[in-house]
Simulated assay, not measured.
Amino acid sequence: MAKIPEVGSKAPPFRLKRDGDGEVSLGDFKGRKLALYFYPKANTSGCTKEAIAFNGLRAAFAAADTDILGVSADPVKAQDSFKAKHDLAFPLGSDETHEMLEAYGVWGEKSMYGRKFMGITRATVLIDRDGTIARIWPKVKVDGHAEEVLKAAQDLP
């Protein structure tokens, strides 16, 4: 697994396909803070709970001048379905090539029930207005996580 960039380093640039057949890039958030969260698979229980938590706090994130972007390796069609099913009001990026996921150090070998496979580590990166990584949560536990990210975003200038 590639290494997660360090706090204080520039966030790796990206351009991804997103829900609704559009594109999303790091440059789209220039001058604003970004809560960039990575999730393993759309419509699974933990990922759904996490997305709903971020979505429920979107007004508070907006008040903190912070955008939210969820990213997984799911195809755009799966992202569209996930977004519609849970009425999510923020973009979902699709990185089927894993290039961006690798740049952020969240794509690599995982193990479950003794079986090894390639996948995404649930992680979040908070990026400041200048495109610098302000905070990293490398192994996220879903309960209370969105609130913790919000607090960190509120504390950033």
Rank of each mutant, 00 (worst) to 15 (best):
D19G: 09
A153K: 00
K116R: 07
G20P: 09
F38G: 04
W107P: 05
A73P: 13
F82K: 02
V149Y: 00
L69H: 07
L57A: 10
E109Y: 10
D155A: 15
F38N: 00
S9Y: 13
K49R: 12
S9V: 13
A60S: 15
G20E: 10
G144T: 12
A134W: 04
P157A: 14
G27M: 04
A51C: 06
F117A: 06
K151G: 08
I52W: 07
T44M: 01
A63F: 08
I127R: 03
Y104E: 02
L16Y: 09
F38Y: 03
P138C: 04
K83Y: 08
V140K: 04
N43G: 11
A123P: 05
L92E: 10
V125C: 05
L57F: 10
N43K: 13
D67H: 12
V125N: 00
L150M: 02
G70D: 13
A42V: 03
I127K: 01
Y104P: 05
H86K: 13
Y39L: 00
K85S: 12
T121F: 08
L150K: 03
V24K: 05
G119P: 00
G31V: 07
L126H: 01
A64N: 05
S25L: 05
I4F: 13
V71P: 01
N55D: 10
K141M: 12
D128W: 04
T66S: 05
F82G: 06
A51W: 00
V149I: 06
L101Y: 01
V106R: 03
E148K: 14
P75G: 06
R15Q: 14
T97K: 11
E6F: 12
M100V: 15
D143C: 11
V149A: 01
H145F: 05
M1L: 15
R18L: 11
A153F: 05
K83H: 08
S9P: 13
N43A: 14
P75K: 07
H98R: 15
